[in-house]
């Protein structure tokens, strides 16, 4: 489904514009909207449980079997310090590649595919340390604020002893 969105969007844009633009997959956690670059997304799956991993922090929901390989699932809500998500069948795991690893991010729902201009990306205002740590920037789309997730930051510090 996301692939179709991507193609439609591309057709609308001129080459020059495309070069300076960024495509995001936007997803929601509660009222908040976050986005990651579409090129990092591998697939989107419904939540179907995960095997808990001991000795890890609460935002590590466990591991799942993704066609024979074991992929860790990070609870983005918990990562932002808002407590663990109580997932239902309607919750969604966005599988992404971070470096050479694949990880899944548990979110409430995938909301949209957005095309934004790189020029429109703002710095994260100082203040909340979790926000500055986990976001690369903020972009406004249809008068909504979308936080750009820093995936490397999200998946780091997962082990209890870290």
């Amino acid at each position: 489904m996301e692939a179709l969105g991507l193609r439609d969007d591309l057709n609308d844009k001129s080459a020059a514009a495309a070069q300076n633009s960024l495509q995001l997959i936007a997803f929601s956690i509660g009222e908040q909207t976050y986005g990651v670059e579409i090129t990092t997304v591998r697939e989107i799956r419904a939540w179907n449980g995960a095997t808990p991993l001991p000795n890890t922090r609460e935002f590590v929901r466990g591991v799942i079997n993704l066609r024979g390989t074991i992929v860790p699932i990070f609870d983005l809500r918990a990562r932002f310090g808002d407590g663990q998500t109580t997932p239902t069948k309607n919750h969604v795991v966005v599988v992404m590649s971070v470096g050479d690893k694949w990880v899944g991010i548990l979110v409430d729902a995938v909301s949209d595919i957005l095309t934004v201009s790189r020029d429109d990306i703002h710095n994260v205002p100082e203040g909340n340390s979790i926000d500055t740590e986990l976001l690369n920037g903020i972009v406004t789309h249809d008068s909504r604020m979308v936080g750009l997730i820093d995936l490397h930051a999200v998946v780091s510090g997962a082990r209890m002893d870290n």
Partner: peptide, 9 residues
């Protein structure tokens, strides 16, 4: 492969 070593596992 996709995560890191977990103590006890």
């Amino acid at each position: 492969e996709n995560f890191e070593r977990v103590e006890g596992i």
